[in-house]
Design a protein around this nucleic acid. Structure first.
Lengths: 130, 130
DNA sequence: GGTAAAATCACCCAAAAGTATGAGTGATAA
DNA sequence: TTATCACTCATACTTTTGGGTGATTTTACC
């Protein structure tokens, strides 16, 4: 009952309000529609640090031979030094994760180190990687 | 009373025992003394590859500032690049393992990398470490 | 053809690394 | 005084690494 009266008493106001709302929305819609082609290009600068990879680096074959490091082991070491995980190395060389681990273990043994970071450090010192 | 009788009754045995003990010890001491020069010196040649560490390397302060890397974070990065484990770094810097991990995580975030090996690689490229 | 080294992969287990979150302190700047 | 920041540390959890072992398959060479 009470709601009914309210509605009847303020029918006009409600009506006006509804119209206002509708046209407000219409206005917004129009504005958006018309503004669409006003595409603005925002330039975002993203600094990329290019790898200053030794351009003409050549691994020390004599040292590789001396340490008894095989081709595959060297490849793994090289990728490790570039920050790749074992899984990523496996993907790149089309090997299983286990194989990469095996190469890694053999590598560590031959280089007499315990961790990949040490292997990288020693590999660079010995001129095995660039 | 009883103890007294025991001592008197076996005075001789006790005396002999004491002598035996003393000379046993003397014998042992002598043997050790005479055996000392038996030490043999073995010379083992071990090849050491000296780190061709940049002699006068200076971290790029501007880059450090740019990347927002703090002193502690830089220290951790530097030790990481030398092949130390988090635990070893913690010991050297008198920090807890967890603190080193925290510094590491913040470092990786700032360098936009996911692993210590990548952090090392990027750190070198940016001239943060030698 | 036999043999040795290299390469491949599996499985299991343990250790190290890394993530997420919260929190306390001291120094310093607004 | 509040706000910020570097530094410290903790707990809990997930992922990655590394060690050990064993096995099969290439590859290269005599």
């Amino acid at each position: 009952m009470e709601y009914k009266f309210v509605i009847i008493d303020h029918a006009l106001e409600i009506y006006v309000g509804a119209i206002a709302l509708i046209f407000t929305i219409l206005g917004i819609w129009l504005a958006l529609k018309l503004n669409k082609p006003k595409l603005q290009t925002v330039l975002v600068e993203k600094e990329i640090y290019i790898q200053k990879q030794e351009p003409g680096f050549v691994p020390d074959d004599a040292m590789l031979l001396k340490m008894g490091i095989s081709k595959r082991e060297w490849e793994v070491l090289s990728l490790m030094s570039q920050g790749f995980s074992n899984q990523e190395i496996a993907n790149q060389l089309f090997l299983s994760l286990n194989t990469v681990k095996t190469h890694g273990s053999n590598l560590f043994f031959k280089l007499e180190v315990k961790r990949r970071t040490q292997a990288i450090e020693k590999g660079k010192r010995l001129g095995l990687i660039g």
